[in-house]
Design a protein around this nucleic acid. Sequence first.
DNA 1: AAGGGATCTGAGACTCATTCGCAACTTGAG
DNA 2: CTCAAGTTGCGAATGAGTCTCAGATCCCTT
Lengths: 141, 141
Amino acid sequence: MSDESDPIEAGLRTEGVRVTRQRLAILHVLREATDHPRAEDILARAKEQDPSVSQATVYRTLSVLEKAGTVLRNEFDGAGARYELAEGGHHDHLIDLDTGAVIEFHSDKIERLQAEIAAELGYEIEWHRLELYGRKSGRRR
Amino acid sequence: MSDESDPIEAGLRTEGVRVTRQRLAILHVLREATDHPRAEDILARAKEQDPSVSQATVYRTLSVLEKAGTVLRNEFDGAGARYELAEGGHHDHLIDLDTGAVIEFHSDKIERLQAEIAAELGYEIEWHRLELYGRKSGRRR
DNA sequence: AAGGGATCTGAGACTCATTCGCAACTTGAG
DNA sequence: CTCAAGTTGCGAATGAGTCTCAGATCCCTT
């Protein structure tokens, strides 16, 4: 069941993170997810695969994976954190205020400007968070 | 004690928001604040001026003032919201990871780029959140 | 200046996401 | 295969923020 050729799994093992059944289930959920699920959703989906997964473990695992750099935590709306796998490079988010859909985007220009601004203020950016909240053009509010 | 010539106060009154002793105390705290205080801090400081102010009222008032556009709510670190008066135009934040200091900045260029990107995706931005987390240049991590 | 109804407020109960404590169970190095 | 260290499930605990409700206050009206 455990695919030793999996790069994420191997990476975790290398970092001394134990790869348990529950963690694999949660990782699997994140891989399949096309949305940015909340802990609650992740728990529900992980249970389908392994009913023994508990809420506490979901939170603990997400925390472990976040520290390992495998998972990213977002807080779009203030109704609980939403998670995504960190694969595929850095990106920011555009949240559709009408549907709640989350669109990922990336702009080197903006990244560069951010670094410039920080430099002007005498800082070096460690990380940043950019979220755009908007509606499809031409929609009545 | 109530200064009728105060623009914020007058504005609220005009919008049908009642100006109470407690609300004035909270408003006063926000005016004096140079940091971006949390609800907890605001409560403590407001109590110095008017001991009758309660936690519930702080939250309710901040919510009322936010809706009125008088106050801005931020969530920098995930340890509770931090507030600031909305006067002085839009700006973004740079958070010093070493000291926790919050530096305000504004860049028309970035704002323009954000709008462009959103437009390309078929969206119009309603509002956005940009936070840079960094350290003073040349500091060892 | 006085009346009075809608709006506010304080206190404490309550919600909800997230974290903890601990005994039992797994993982993985040797 | 063994066993210490790392994990897990459960349920209790936490903490920011919200709600309920009776009493207090604001401020429009007269």
